[in-house]
Design a protein around this nucleic acid. Structure first.
Length: 223
DNA sequence: TAGGCCATCTGGTCCT
DNA sequence: AGGACCAGATGGCCTA
């Protein structure tokens, strides 16, 4: 899915959200529900009345809207275009955010509020995981290899979701990370990530699974 | 059919 | 003055 309103350096007042997320890497994984879905933010046809395509008979509002004439009408139409563009930028930023959040392959696209809650809890869980790592006094070893990009998780097949536990992965406490950044992410974890309460996300269950060879110390770090 | 989610329009407010 | 931002209103689409 490509943003309909890409960030432009010339757009000095592009929506803050869009500007903030411009630096995000392109999506690494594909999501079933997003594949080929390019019409999602396709601008709708301009409406003759506010809020939809209902006939004037069903619209209780006066006919002032688009039918406003003269300079006032032109200003309003211009403002509507800007507002539409602003919302498209906001949606593009949300899309960018969705692409860096882990998701189950069969997942439906997260709604806006789910995306925000998920991101909030995801950041919290990552922070807690790092904090726990620090408590083990081995923080430097947990840093990702140079050039790696933890912000671009890839999706894994359904069969992999529950294929590993911290114990199975050989980590006594909480996490195993590796260079490809593929990790297990259970449906239960997803549910917790959507919780209003970030404490529902237990950082010790948020661990990374090595898939490119745990034997290679260059690619694997754990805590 | 009700409810959730969304896009759009709109007028008000604040900022540059 | 004009643009950005915001929240309310409205109707379309989809799903349980």
């Amino acid at each position: 899915m490509s943003p309909k309103a890409p960030c432009s350096p010339n757009d000095l007042r592009t929506s803050r959200a869009a500007v903030t997320l411009c630096g995000f890497p392109p999506a690494v994984r594909s999501r079933v529900n997003e594949a080929g879905d390019t019409s999602e933010h396709e601008p709708r046809k301009p409406l003759t009345v506010a809020g939809g395509q209902a006939s004037p008979m069903t619209n209780p509002r006066p006919q002032s809207r688009r039918e406003q004439s003269g300079q006032r009408g032109r200003r309003r139409a211009k403002a509507n275009d800007r507002e539409r563009s602003r919302m498209h930028n906001l949606n593009s930023a949300l899309d960018a955010l969705r692409t860096i959040l882990p998701a189950l392959p069969e997942d439906a696209k997260m709604t806006k509020i789910e995306t925000l809650r998920f991101a909030h809890n995801y950041i919290w869980a990552l922070s807690e995981t790092l904090r726990m790592a620090d408590q083990h006094g081995r923080a430097p070893e947990y840093l990702p290899p140079v050039g790696s990009d933890l912000s671009s998780p890839t999706s894994v097949s359904s069969a992999e979701w529950n294929s590993a536990s911290p114990a199975q992965a050989g980590c006594a406490t909480s996490a195993v990370c590796e260079q490809t950044h593929r990790y297990t992410f259970s449906p239960q974890m997803k549910w917790k990530m959507l919780s209003r309460d970030p404490s529902a996300v237990v950082p010790v269950t948020f661990y990374f699974k090595s898939v490119c060879g745990e034997d290679d110390p260059k690619n694997t770090w754990r805590f």
